[in-house]
Design a protein around this nucleic acid. Sequence first.
DNA 1: TTGTAAGCGTTATCAC
DNA 2: GTGATAACGCTTACAA
Lengths: 339, 339
Amino acid sequence: MSVTIKDVAKLAKVAPSTVSRVIANNPRISEKTKNRVREAMESLGYHPNYNARSLANRSTQSIGLVMPSSVDKVFQNPFFPEVIRGISTKAHEEDFAIYMSTGQSEQESLEGVERMLHGGRVDGVIILYSSIDDKIMSFLQEEKFPFSVIGKPYNNVNQITHVDNDNVQAGKDVTDYLIQLGHKRIAYVCGSLDSVVSMDRKLGYKKALQDANISYQEEYILKEELLNDGGIKEISRLMSLQSPPTALIVKDDLLSFSIMGTIDKMGYSIPKDLSLVSFNNLMLSEFTRPPLTTVDIDIFNLGYHAADCLLNLIKNPGQEAKQVIVPHRLVERQTGQRI
Amino acid sequence: MSVTIKDVAKLAKVAPSTVSRVIANNPRISEKTKNRVREAMESLGYHPNYNARSLANRSTQSIGLVMPSSVDKVFQNPFFPEVIRGISTKAHEEDFAIYMSTGQSEQESLEGVERMLHGGRVDGVIILYSSIDDKIMSFLQEEKFPFSVIGKPYNNVNQITHVDNDNVQAGKDVTDYLIQLGHKRIAYVCGSLDSVVSMDRKLGYKKALQDANISYQEEYILKEELLNDGGIKEISRLMSLQSPPTALIVKDDLLSFSIMGTIDKMGYSIPKDLSLVSFNNLMLSEFTRPPLTTVDIDIFNLGYHAADCLLNLIKNPGQEAKQVIVPHRLVERQTGQRI
DNA sequence: TTGTAAGCGTTATCAC
DNA sequence: GTGATAACGCTTACAA
């Protein structure tokens, strides 16, 4: 079997408890014995067993990640690798390990989280999305289990630790940008109906219109759900309106890519016939033709701070919920044009 | 504290060991007591503690994922979410949990794996990439720890369980395809130098050329590493050759996106001036203009089978290494054109 | 068919 | 400063 604390103790001629204290770098152990023990650990190739430690400790030094239930292709979204990169950078700094949980349905995901939590596999959880009426979030709240959310929770915003962009402002910013370019008929492509991010941006969109005395038109609102086939149907509806829009705000770059394809197929040209601005600034957005004007939401830091908040919560239980806003910035490229 | 096996035992008026047996669904326990115990578990909201179980069991019911060390933007590649979706689908079926490990460098990654392994956090590991001289792979072999690889290992191919496409064939297929469209001057954009996948495809490329009596030209080979700035320099070198290529084979769709952007910027048109075929068939590849002709490598199943193989290895230790080939298929869209 | 008790590798609480 | 010893929650011989 593998080498344990007892083997080390024997070799260093000390008690197991002493070895444990050396591992924890307990200041009450003399440097001399510390060195002796460390040599023994080294020469035996000792590695602490995390399970035993967790059991004795009631802490796991790991956090769990909850992905959206991946019924669909959402999962091919490069947003996730990037946000995970942020999380794991922070986790690594503090020597925390990362558990993942996915499921084909919300129910399956919930069960996964229940197992992680009750099974004592993790000390806390990060939810990588935020949607209305999320069961997992309610569950974690009920259990008073440490968690943080990427995006803004729908309810109890102030009681839940989360990190988000100022999406209302971001929505307003892009709309203002288009207005300032001379656009008055601006359409908006929502994300899925129950995404809070998307709702916030829409709020900003409305606000900008209002400030500019442009009336909000329901017919200018497209829903992502209706865009399965590349959205030809919805977009042609849009373009054949009496007064078709001159600009489009799109929920995220990924969706923009497909919409740009469709628009092209339909014989329209971006940005000549239609300006387009969206969100996320994926690496690829630089390489579309024309390159995408988009809001950089700093995905990496969304992840990094979510991990940071969670680790704080874990280390100082009973702490108040905290909210972090990660700054966004409009990256001007070529899909938005003066009218 | 949370409810343990003893609490359940007390309530059901049995011994803790009996409860344990009920959990394991031991056939030697009478249905009657099983039911009584199950009721008790239910009413107390019992969940088994995985750490305790692992400790007693010396098995963790979890597997670890090793990502490439994410120095760069590689991480925004949608390949990874998709492959993870495959893995986690299989893992879920067998009630295994998933651990992740990343690092900023190969050294950091290796340390992460060492901790996972020696710390007893996982029963096995999947390596999500395959590169020449990988230290992590050697480490796992030395330790005789169960692992599987996505992609083909560079050394000891037959001793290592892995799942891959037939990349030589895939490379040959796309080249044949272009040749059959009338192309004779076909350039090839390698992936990073130490990727085995890329080497295999290049082999297929060479083979196809040979079969068609076309001579292999070193000047037609581009290296991804040189393409940081979108590759303008390398591509203009290519296009200003005495006899510039009429077709381009590109390592993966992601890279194709950026190359298509560059080529467009330079005033050339795809596929009129240059045909382009690549690999991966990302969701997005359907939406580029023109839509990408590319090889679908079935990323999901690459992940799914890697997990399957690993779980087999874990359950039947000492089993022989196994190799799985996931079929690929050329998806003909519009970037490859008859000359 | 079920109970008893030892053990998995740690940490924590007392002693000294 | 360091050493015994009892947890932590579970599994698994071995008994009964």
